[in-house]
Design a protein around this nucleic acid. Structure first.
Length: 186
DNA sequence: CGAATTTGACCTGCGC
DNA sequence: GCGCAGGTCAAATTCG
């Protein structure tokens, strides 16, 4: 695998996984309040995106999913070992990647994120940052990575869905657009 | 002083 | 089996 394994949602063989309609509701907020811009992606993804911004943003659905690992089951067992004690079934959550052109890495999507890691990525001179939603019980994660090929492009990958409202008031959308220029692919 | 970030260690999956 | 790459943890540090 090289670079970022994001694929376009053109899955012809396997049925598209039901994208939780709120997985990226944060972006829905970004899209100017049209809630179902990506939400209904289950269907709209296939035949082309129905973006509220006239397909100025590339929504990339990654079919390469990730493994659940051991999910921090350090509650009861005193074992500080991080060994996977249980054979949790492999529930792979789909990830949703967004490519945007932005000067800043951190796009304010209205949620509160806590950074929990940063790693250098192969074939990329920029590190990848890992964030987790700080809301209790909300297990949404996201990765932010800048392309070394075009350092003006930031790829944000969301994983999971928020189960709580946005913590910040719905500011003006244009303010955000000032920060990020939508990357329009040719 | 509490919350968020930094950063190196650690873990796991995968390819060779 | 080994090494690499990606992902996460957690102690230390910084920030508001």
């Amino acid at each position: 695998m090289e670079g970022f394994p994001i694929l376009f949602p053109t899955q012809h063989s396997s049925p598209p996984p039901p994208p939780s309609s709120s997985a990226i509701n944060s972006l829905g907020y970004l899209m100017g309040g049209s809630s179902q811009v990506f939400g209904s992606s289950s269907s709209s993804l296939h035949g082309g995106f129905n973006l509220g911004l006239k397909d100025e943003i590339n929504l990339l659905v990654s079919s390469s999913q990730l493994e659940p690992h051991r999910h921090l089951l350090s509650d009861s067992e005193n074992n500080e070992m991080r060994a996977p004690r249980k054979k949790e079934k492999k529930v792979r959550k789909p990830r949703y990647a967004f490519q945007t052109r932005s000067q800043v890495d951190i796009l304010d999507d209205g949620y509160r994120w806590r950074k929990y890691g940063q790693k250098a990525v192969k074939n990329n001179k920029f590190p990848r940052s890992y964030y987790r939603c700080t809301h209790q019980g909300c297990n949404v994660k996201k990765q932010v990575q800048r392309l070394s090929k075009d350092e003006s492009i930031v790829v944000t990958t969301y994983e999971g869905m928020h189960n709580h409202p946005i913590e910040k008031p719905n500011d003006n959308f244009e303010d955000i657009l000032n920060q990020m220029q939508i990357y329009s692919e040719s």
